[in-house]
Nucleic acid binder design. Structure first.
Lengths: 196, 196
DNA sequence: TAGCCCATGTAATTGGTTACATGATTGA
DNA sequence: TCAATCATGTAACCAATTACATGGGCTA
């Protein structure tokens, strides 16, 4: 099951531009980290596989190679890969399939909250307060990212889709800030309404 | 890292009532599946460990054992575990720690959406429509669960916390239904606004 | 007595992170 | 020339699911 989504993540990234393994890591870290991550331990082996399958191919290293090549370096220092037509086809087929539902599995904060009565007074409130701070911070980074994207890639054909993913994050974090505020009120209310 | 959250999930479940491994599986499937899951492959080994550490203990099987015991069965058919005071302490300490931020890792729908231009026309809209249906369905199950909880466990001291987790799901799904509606409108707009 | 659920468990595999080893290049 | 960063890779480990093996008990 689940069919190795790293393959598609890498293929997708390479549609944006040709990249090395190192570039890919940064792409995931800096570009899409709020909904996707990949580690070297995944990236390099997958690149080798994809190359063997003909879904990506070596693309000469545009930059940096100059000096090295002038010095007669045997091989270009960076291995830069580009997606091939076959790779594009594979990616397109995957994109046409429905995404896994995956209703937010393993949300640690909810696991803690579910049992929070065992955590003594204040435990639940602390969890909620932390969460609120996290989502407020996320909203700030989303806003910054959005501004940067609109400025730097105004004409990029992928931009509308990038903005949609950001909007997803914004909707979720806004909702969770609101949930935190609700929850704080609930938790502040007397647990057992004192009988008179 | 990450310190084996299954241990705490199991300990937490056992604060609700003593259970067997089989019961635990059903607890996760039926009770908290929208934010947590555990498989037998995790549950049974962890139970053994927890028992060895004295964090849970055998609790006699209340039900079913009757006939078997009458027939002189060597051991009770089910192994039912209860949390021990030591177990409660461990759980309480864990609950006092902040939860991992874990900002929604690996959301497949966003990965697809990010690259959706490669998926041909309609691919993105299909993803969004599916997602809308999923979250609308979730909202219905949340409402049903909430009604059932309020009816069956009105006096349960954990009820407020259970409702908070439900509310979390409701906030998120409501926000995502709204996001889907936004996204559909965006996608319906002409991708390249025809110049006049 | 067949078929279904209850129940426990494990082995194989997958998916993924972490930590490390190694070395080149660049810029202060 | 030193430190930081660029760059590739792998081995060890961890978390988790899947699929199976095994068998008791219940009921139609």
């Amino acid at each position: 099951m689940s069919e190795n989504r790293t393959r598609y993540a890498v293929l997708g990234a390479l549609t944006v531009e040709p990249m090395s393994g190192y570039d890919l890591k940064r792409f995931f870290e800096q570009g899409v980290s709020f909904f996707w991550a990949e580690s070297y331990g995944q990236i390099y082996p997958i690149l080798k596989q994809l190359k063997a399958e003909g879904l990506v191919a070596d693309a000469g290293d545009e930059r940096g190679g100059a000096k090295a090549r002038a010095a007669g370096a045997a091989h270009p220092r960076r291995a830069v890969y580009a997606i091939t037509p076959a790779g594009r086809e594979v990616l397109t087929r995957w994109l046409a399939e429905p995404a896994e539902p995956q209703a937010g599995r393993r949300l640690e904060i909810l696991l803690k909250l579910f049992f929070a009565r065992q955590g003594g007074p204040g435990a639940a409130a602390r969890l909620v307060a932390d969460s609120r701070a996290q989502h407020a911070a996320l909203l700030a980074t989303y806003a910054a990212t959005e501004a940067r994207l609109r400025a730097d890639h105004a004409a990029h054909p992928d931009l509308p889709f990038w903005l949609l993913t950001l909007s997803y994050g914004q909707h979720v974090s806004q909702a969770l800030v609101a949930w935190c505020d609700d929850a704080m009120r609930t938790l502040a209310a007397p647990p057992t309404p004192a009988p008179r």
